[in-house]
């Protein structure tokens, strides 16, 4: 069904693997579209309680395939048509989305990682704000997410200087949640995603939704959003299970409902 990615659901985790290893998983129109479609598929599938995006081969994603870039290209339209729907979809899925950054994440590849809710990095992985090196501006949500993750000054530094950020530095910056060694990578990544997939999915979705909105809202609005969110979360089976497990002094088993 998909040609540039593989998609598989395992233990409630949708594994979405960018699969153009010979091109370092560079974006083509088809790859953008397949990521968006697969994200929609994961969104609809009640079995899926966590989405994991990773790359096949040695790179996570090297950004736009420069082989396809030419003088006639309308850069704005490329973004509106291909990249922006992908970025918006990742933001609107009310399930946790994890980027397992297995190698270099450059340019729009870095943007893709930023558009996910969590980033894990393999020890030799790196992030590069590559846009400036070809005289361009970070795009695909990069300028939105980067300052929110690392702060304004650091974001400006990274975007303008375009220097490679290695995994340990990315951890220091708060850009990634965990760095894993090559040996433990597969196992730890799966464990991280499966842990998220066993949590109260609805509550995670609401946290994601309202943290996003908090950036454009004042205290009164956020307080009101929290009240609505708590009302909703309070009606979930997972909330009842959490309370029940607490009273019975056992570990809760959340169903994501």
């Amino acid at each position: 069904m998909y040609e540039t990615i593989t998609y598989e659901v395992k233990n409630n985790v949708a594994w979405l693997t960018l699969n153009r290893p010979e091109k370092l998983n560079a974006f083509t129109e088809q790859l953008n579209k397949e990521i968006t479609d697969a994200a929609k598929q994961a969104e609809r599938d009640e079995n899926v309680r966590c989405v994991l995006i990773t790359g096949a081969g040695r790179a996570f994603c090297s950004g736009e395939d420069l082989a396809g870039v030419n003088e006639q290209m309308d850069h704005a339209e490329v973004l509106r048509k291909r990249y922006n729907p992908m970025v918006k979809k990742l933001a609107s899925i009310e399930k946790p989305v994890v980027a397992a950054v297995n190698g270099v994440a450059a340019g729009a590849g870095m943007s893709l990682a930023l558009a996910c809710d969590f980033r894990l990095a393999k020890e030799n992985a790196s992030f590069v704000e590559a846009f400036i090196h070809v005289g361009l501006v970070p795009d695909s949500g990069n300028l939105y997410y980067l300052p929110r993750i690392v702060g304004h000054a650091k974001a400006l530094e990274l975007a303008v200087l375009g220097e490679k950020i290695k995994a340990p530095q990315a951890k220091e910056l708060g850009l990634v949640t965990e760095v894993y060694t090559e040996e433990e990578w597969d196992e730890k990544v799966a464990a991280f995603a499966e842990r998220l997939a066993s949590m109260p999915t609805k509550a995670i979705g609401l946290i994601k939704r309202y943290l996003q909105k908090s950036w454009d809202s004042d205290l009164d609005e956020v307080l009101e959003m929290e009240a609505g969110a708590q009302k909703t979360a309070g009606l979930t089976a997972d909330h009842h299970e959490g309370i029940q497990a607490f009273l019975e002094k056992r570990r809760p088993v959340f169903q994501g409902k």
Binding site: G228, T232, L235
Partner: peptide, 10 residues
């Protein structure tokens, strides 16, 4: 605007 889950109630 309200969260979709609570719109009717609110």
């Amino acid at each position: 605007l309200f969260a979709p889950e609570v719109l009717f109630e609110e």
